[in-house]
Design a protein around this nucleic acid. Structure first.
Length: 480
RNA sequence: GGCGCAUUAGUCUAGUUGGCCUAGGACGCCGCCCUCUCAAGGCGGAGAUCGCGGGUUCGAAUCCCGCAUGCGCUACCA
């Protein structure tokens, strides 16, 4: 049987890392088994769903390389792939349940239900629906319906218990008497989450429901619904939550955890994917860096952990640096370039700048953990330098003036303005002045790059070029 | 209150059927080396009585029971 999985975000905000991991695991499972990965937008909550959020979620999924086989923009035979277009399906299912006596109308008002719930809690009782509308005489129900009194449709939870095998956690069971008669259709006719998911997963022939842990207690309700509809439930796998260091579920409270924000900070999608994959899953006892192919070839739900994982950005950062170091010059430059454009350092169309960046790539590769880190490291290549505040002190040191003076002369006489030659002549100069390398080179670094920290000096000078180097040295000298 | 799930170092985790675990790997941290700055790299180090308490066993992180803590659900949200 073909493996069919889905990622079903509700577009009430941006895709956050927890959602991204859920999507990734689903995608991985589909790719591992040559199945289908379906994207379905759960926008039954119209008031909170937005079109922008849908677009943003799709953009983030694409950025991560999680392509869907069916869903918005790609279509599929189970169209449409957003719940707002599937009302008829939910209604049909609900009405069928009503006809078969597996659901019943409830005329209770939301406010009064809320009040009863509060009261129950106050008295230490379980705040479950008391089925008072189920007890209504048939004639009374019909009368009220005829009068047009709005009603919600509740599922009549049967007796017994629900036991299922979660692919991550093993056997889990719930007693039905702990499950209340949940609402299927709201009084405005719209479907609630539990009804919609079941109807959709059924209609879309989903074989594995892989989702967050927070849905674990919804599962028995859904299984009951599958059975009531005369269908076999799919397999379930509940992923542990991603929490912050304080042990609470990761959320906005802990800073921006949207996938988009990581992209903007300069994380690589391949690093995100690798890191996300390892948040709750492992290949073995030692493999940490894995490319997409390795992930696809080895992913299995059996190796998914059931304990919540703490989001550790330090490790993500390290992983990102690993992926950055693995990029070749041109690729790395290509990824950094947009960040320079964003900073206004270069024009999008500046081909020469692109080439210069390619040459600078080997100098910065091991010095950045985020693509955005490159900006301040290469700024001096694209802009005249402005000496940074904390770098001025370097020029105030005693050795600064003679170094700049002598270096200027030495560089002027150099036949070939290449890193090895530059290094040779500058080291000789340092010897002549009786200075340690550091004493001799720091003032030059500040003059050329404007900062105390920069890519390797000689290579940087080569890229800046003789003329500009001499100008910068002269300027620094004037400023003394 | 009820129901459910989880519990190996600061963190991610390995540990699938009890012995190869005096608990392995990685991030982070500390030290040394390398060094023109910063990194990267190399070498080394600290850090876990495997939540707690019982039990089963020749032997338990691994099996059983109890407890504690945390989290989730308990909506006409998803």
């Amino acid at each position: 049987m073909e493996v069919r999985v889905r990622f079903a975000p509700s577009p009430t905000g941006y895709l956050h890392v927890g959602g991204a991991r859920t999507a990734l695991y689903n995608w991985l499972l589909a790719r591992r088994h040559g199945g289908s990965f379906i994207l379905r937008i759960e926008d039954t909550d119209i008031s909170r769903s937005t079109e922008e959020a849908i677009q943003a979620i799709m953009e983030d999924l694409r950025w991560l390389g999680l392509d869907w086989d069916e869903g918005p923009e790609v279509g599929g035979k189970h169209f449409p792939y957003r719940q707002t277009g599937r009302y008829a399906l939910y209604r049909d299912a609900a009405m069928r349940l009503l006809r078969e006596g597996k659901a019943y109308p409830c005329f209770c008002e939301p406010e009064e239900l809320a009040e009863r719930r509060r009261e129950a809690l106050r008295q230490g009782r379980s705040p479950m629906y008391d089925r008072r509308c189920l007890a209504l005489p048939e004639r009374e129900k019909e009368a009220r319906m005829r009068q047009g009194i709005p009603y919600a449709l509740r599922f009549l939870v049967p007796e017994g218990e629900v036991t299922f095998t979660d692919l991550v956690r093993g056997e889990i069971s719930f007693r039905n008497r702990d499950i209340e008669d949940f609402v299927l259709l709201r009084s405005d006719g719209s479907a609630t989450y539990n009804l919609a998911v079941v109807v959709d997963d059924l209609e879309m022939e989903i074989t594995h429901v892989v989702r967050g842990d927070d849905h674990l207690s919804n599962t028995p309700k859904q299984i009951l619904l599958y059975r009531a509809l005369g269908a076999e439930p799919p397999a379930f796998a509940h992923l542990p939550m991603i929490v912050a260091r304080d042990g609470r579920p990761l959320s906005k409270r802990h800073g921006d955890v949207s996938v988009g924000s990581f992209r903007e900070k300069g994380y690589l999608p391949e690093a995100m994917v690798n890191f996300l994959a390892l948040l709750g899953w492992s290949l073995d006892d030692s493999t940490t860096i894995m490319d997409r192919t390795t992930l696809v070839e080895n992913f299995s739900l059996e190796r998914v952990s059931s304990k919540p994982a703490v989001w550790d950005e330090d490790k993500l950062l390290w992983m990102n640096s690993q992926y950055i170091m693995a990029l070749d010059d041109r690729e790395l430059a290509g990824r950094i370039f947009p960040f320079l454009v964003r900073e206004g350092l270069v024009e999008e169309s500046d081909a020469a700048a692109r080439e210069l960046l390619v040459k600078a790539a080997p100098l910065i590769r091991e010095r950045i953990k985020l693509l955005a880190d490159a900006v301040h490291l290469v700024r001096f290549l694209f802009q005249e330098v402005e000496i940074e505040e904390d770098a001025r002190q370097v020029l105030e040191e005693e050795a600064a003036e003679p170094v700049l003076r002598e270096a200027g002369k030495a560089l002027l006489e150099l036949k070939e303005f290449k890193a090895p030659q530059i290094e040779g002549t500058l080291r000789a100069m340092a010897d002549r002045l009786g200075l340690k390398p550091r004493q001799a080179f720091q003032p030059l670094r500040v003059a050329i790059t404007g900062r105390k920290v920069s890519p390797p000096l000689f290579e940087s000078m080569e890229l800046v070029g003789r003329e500009r180097c001499l100008q910068r040295i002269a300027r620094a000298l004037e400023a003394l």
